[in-house]
Amino acid sequence: MQQLTLTVNGTKRTLLAKPDATLLDVLRDGFGLCGTKRGCEQGSCGACTVLLDDEPVLSCLTPALRCLDRCVTTIEGLTESGEVAELQRQLVERGGIQCGFCTPGMVVTLHAFLRHNLVPTEDEIRDAISGNLCRCTGYAKIVKAAMIASGLQGERS
């Protein structure tokens, strides 16, 4: 066990982590932040996507100890800060959510993308979420929600 200090959703946290623990393990089992989903633990579904120093990473492939003194933001943090409120609202209202298991990872990925792409094309959005698997929606309403959210985001900024 090793002591690990990191900032999670704006708060400095410390815990003892096993050397082989992933960031996903620490978030879910250590901090009880269960919005980040355990979908494959192989880096191929995107359900565990979180921000590490503002960049999206697959938390299932990120060793926890690599996050020492770094900032992690999860779906809970993004929700609380209100940064993704418009995107979340559009996903809800446009039906971009069915079973919802991919949704938190999808929100984190889209947020990271839309921040740097104020006027994205549909193809760019499809490209941005190509690492986030959704088996329910055929992506149609997710892409639509992101397009509308980006437009509204563009208007605001």
Partner: peptide, 13 residues
């Protein structure tokens, strides 16, 4: 919209 969509989109479901 699904009645549980808000919980799903915020990660609290």
């Amino acid at each position: 919209p699904y009645i549980d969509a808000q919980a799903k989109v915020t990660g609290t479901a």
